[in-house]
């Protein structure tokens, strides 16, 4: 009995209907969070005493970085679920997660680079965290490219799931080794604000933005999932009914 919810997750029509109902209030909520969070962060927080106004990009940069990291695990867990339980919905969720994750990682790199110009005086530094993010971007792109290379999409999902799982095992090793690599070649000129604390007046909008971007991530995954479900199930009766009703 306790497992019925789990079996329902594997049913495309149920997921389609459920995600539709969920999005009906999640989408406006996300929009509201994003607007409130960014207006609060960009306009109503005090300027930083050292960085002035340029620090405000953290209200975009930090949330997308956090979510892009979490996104890889979402993708890998979806891949594991699809390999273990042969769940079609998990397959689709995994392949939808790859381009969204890659996009967020790219956004994190771009915003970081824009932030770097006024603070460090350069667009690009081979810092440990930046380098790890570049590796993460390529891990995402690898999964996406592998998926695109297969003609048989059911097999593509399985192959991507294996690759994502191998990546998951490897990610901690990559992070540790990149950290160690950076400690070897420590450049003297750039100092990171690692030890400084953040004032609550700046922290609360940041936390709100992190929640907002998480919500946005869920919305994007669900929207992608719904589109992909319609496409892959286009021959079934429920999709035809769904389309007729629209």
């Amino acid at each position: 009995m306790a497992w019925t919810w789990f079996h329902r997750l594997g049913s495309p029509p149920w997921i389609y209907g459920f995600s539709g109902r969920l999005l009906r209030f999640l989408l406006p909520l996300t929009l509201m969070l994003l607007v409130v969070g960014s207006v609060w962060g960009l306009a109503f927080t005090p300027p930083d005493f050292r960085q002035g106004n340029s620090y405000r990009i953290i209200y975009i940069h930090v949330p997308v970085s956090v979510v892009s990291l979490a996104g890889y695990y979402v993708m890998a867990i979806a891949g594991a679920v699809s390999l273990i339980w042969r769940m079609k919905v998990a397959d689709i969720a995994m392949r939808v997660a790859a381009p969204i994750g890659a996009g967020l990682t790219f956004l994190a790199l771009v915003t970081g680079s824009i932030w770097g110009k006024p603070t460090w005086g350069t667009w690009w530094v081979w810092d440990a965290r930046i380098t790890s993010m570049v590796v993460l971007l390529f891990l995402y792109l690898g999964v996406y490219a592998l998926y695109e290379a297969y003609d048989n999409k059911a097999l593509a999902s399985k192959a991507c799931a294996i690759l994502a799982l191998v990546g998951t095992v490897n990610i901690p090793i990559i992070y540790k080794s990149v950290d160690w690599w950076y400690s070897l070649h420590q450049p003297a000129s750039i100092k990171f604000t690692g030890g400084t604390t953040i004032d609550p007046s700046m922290l609360y909008p940041l936390l709100l933005m992190i929640v907002a971007v998480y919500a946005l991530y869920v919305c994007l995954i669900l929207l992608g999932l719904r589109a992909a479900l319609l496409e892959s199930e286009s021959k079934t009766k429920w999709v035809q009914q769904e389309v007729m009703e629209q």
Binding site: V135, A145, L146, V166, G167
Partner: peptide, 10 residues
């Protein structure tokens, strides 16, 4: 090369 090189970073 896209699949393997990022994994081989360590």
């Amino acid at each position: 090369s896209l699949l393997l090189l990022p994994l081989e970073v360590p």
